[in-house]
Design a protein around this nucleic acid. Sequence first.
DNA 1: TTGACGGATGTTATAATATATCGGTAGCCT
DNA 2: AGGCTACCGATATATTATAACATCCGTCAA
Lengths: 143, 143
Amino acid sequence: MSAQKASAQLNAMQSRIRDLLARADKPLSAYDVIDGLRDHGRVAPPTVYRALQKLIDEGLAHRLETRNAYVVCRDGGHVCGHRHRAGFMICRTCGRTLEFGDEEIERLLGGAAARSGFVAERVAIEIQGLCATCASLPDANGA
Amino acid sequence: MSAQKASAQLNAMQSRIRDLLARADKPLSAYDVIDGLRDHGRVAPPTVYRALQKLIDEGLAHRLETRNAYVVCRDGGHVCGHRHRAGFMICRTCGRTLEFGDEEIERLLGGAAARSGFVAERVAIEIQGLCATCASLPDANGA
DNA sequence: TTGACGGATGTTATAATATATCGGTAGCCT
DNA sequence: AGGCTACCGATATATTATAACATCCGTCAA
Ligand SMILES: [Zn+2]
Ligand SMILES: [Zn+2]
Ligand SMILES: [Zn+2]
Ligand SMILES: [Zn+2]
């Protein structure tokens, strides 16, 4: 058991935050997380940001750049614990966020980059719009 | 000339900011812009944010979500003045940013979205990495 | 002409997001 | 034990963005 690595090595704070993100049905900002942890006493921003970064490093969570918010990794099948690229569809009405890990898209992005000799390291793909549910409600369509 | 619309209807502030963005060889934050306009006297944040939004609305500039920064539209051929979707490759070393408007990618993203019944409105695609120039320099490779 | 109205622009103040920096704690090696 | 290191957390502050209010200016009915 010398080379045991990564997951399950979360401390109490990290676990609490992961649970909080997992229970939420939409992305939480760092300060939403701080508020959500009020039961455990006051928590300072750096504590939360570091814990979030840890979860991201472990592949357990993602940051949504267009929202300044965080979600647990919900990439359908894959068992988390390895970092992976992902895209997101974020509903502007209900906030629900669908994660997708479409390798096809990633390959194409890599291709577009390679055409210019660009070496891709991080890829952010975030689609804002209406989820199927909200799109079917008249209110959300702007009408 | 009753229905003349859009472009060239920039006021002095908007033009100055567009010029500033155009002269910069990398994305500028809103506060970089404020600093860059110091010659013209102090400018307050809302003034700059509103002007930037105007430029974005006119299709003359884009916001980089992963950087909280702004660039002029440099989509190769197209004459700006209409909003369009774009992707970006952002060099982490020199900051230079390449804009691409790959319809193929957009179609695929639309497809990924449609598969879940998601109605895409805004699409952000931002690739961080090394530009061809920086990738060829030993320092930038992390070595 | 003139003064009520409305939209655009500018200012002040403050909110929301994120990090620099320091000090404490615990494991670990000598 | 003593010192080293790495992690952890708190205080303070930096960075990014907007709310709320004031001002200016063109429009148009009276
Ligand atoms: Zn994921
Ligand atoms: Zn929805
Ligand atoms: Zn463009
Ligand atoms: Zn570069």
